[in-house]
Simulated scan of single mutants.
Amino acid sequence: MPAASTSLFRTALQAARDAAGSQDYPQGTLYVVATPIGNLADVTLRALHVLELADAVACEDTRHTQSLLRAYGIDRKGSQLLAVHQHNEAEAAQMVVARLAQGERIAYVSDAGTPGVSDPGARLAAAVRAAGHRVLPLPGASSVTTLLSAAGLVAADSDDYSAFVFAGFLPTKATERDGAIQRLAQEPRAVVLLEAPHRIEAVARALAVLGERRVTLGRELTKQFEEIETVPAAQLSEWLAAKEQRTRGEFALVLHPSASRDGTADEGERVLRLLLPELPVKTAVRLAAEISGAPRNALYERALQLKEADAG
């Protein structure tokens, strides 16, 4: 973060004091604070005020958070930053609870975005609520809603806005990931995924089984080199490979709603055609039926026809 950021945000910090300072901020409360996912200007005025007001800031990475606070002109001693991350969340939560019991205000931030959404924070919030203290959320940036807002999702069989499912990160092991994708293929609603740069190519290859189902990919959202693109799942690997930088950065993906169930038979044959060259007939039929929802007997008959045509 550039050192010049502090001077740039001086007026924002004063605006935060003016706009949010007169509101009520009860003591003995955990403030769950959303922070920008890339663009520093996406911080909210209330977030700035609470980060300055709180007795301590619990955070996923103290060095990252210290840099973030300094960029906004907020000065915090090292002792006022409490490490609460994936590996110590359970025990660190008890430390936070003890401080809340003394009437302190504690703000919690993850490295970027909204805590507790594929980031640490859920166990902390649960422990604080279980101890009888208040958890007060300060909404703000989220890669999930950021990409959804640009994906243009409409329900497949109506003019209604589409519902969505948040699946987060897929399993890292290939067999488990393939199984998860097979289950997602049967989900008619939109599905939001998150992924890291070192796994995005493997995920793209695995998603190819979804064929023509559209995928909107967001790379480096809100940052200078942000890219948002919608392609069929079968072409996602090709799109990533077209430019070297496309595999860099953090990723969010949206699987668009599946086609209307009226197209189940066509979808079953499409999947079957993809699987038959690689797998035995019975295995290809079973997987095609699970993925598309098409009747297994009909797929088996069609598989025999396709095999016979290829042999001829």
Rank of each mutant, 00 (worst) to 15 (best):
S5C: 06
T283K: 09
R286H: 09
P36Y: 02
S158P: 03
H85W: 13
L255S: 09
E290L: 12
R214N: 00
A3T: 15
T146E: 10
Y300R: 10
D160V: 05
A155W: 03
V109R: 05
L304G: 15
G249H: 03
L13M: 05
A208F: 03
M1N: 15
A294Q: 06
V50K: 04
A167N: 08
R302F: 10
M1F: 14
L210P: 03
E195P: 06
A311C: 14
L100D: 01
E250M: 08
D160I: 02
A289Q: 10
A19T: 10
D157S: 02
N297F: 15
Q66V: 15
T62L: 11
K243F: 12
P26K: 15
H256M: 02
R248E: 14
V209E: 03
Q102S: 07
G211I: 06
A241K: 11
V33I: 09
R46G: 00
A131P: 03
R273L: 12
A156M: 05
D61L: 04
A93S: 07
F251T: 02
L40H: 01
A206Y: 10
L48V: 03
D178M: 07
A54L: 03
A47L: 00
A127H: 04
A125H: 07
A126D: 05
A83L: 02
L13T: 07
L13Q: 13
V154P: 00
L68Q: 05
A41M: 04
A303D: 07
D24Y: 15
Y72W: 11
S237Y: 09
R99M: 13
K77Y: 15
R214K: 04
E60A: 06
T283L: 09
A131L: 09
L207T: 04
P171L: 06
S110H: 00
L69N: 12
A196S: 15
G21S: 10
P115M: 06
A185C: 08
D310V: 13
E301A: 10
E91K: 10
L276Y: 03
Q102T: 11
A20I: 05
A185D: 01
D157H: 02
T114P: 01
D61F: 12
L48M: 11
L240N: 09
G73P: 03
L148E: 01
L221F: 06
H64L: 10
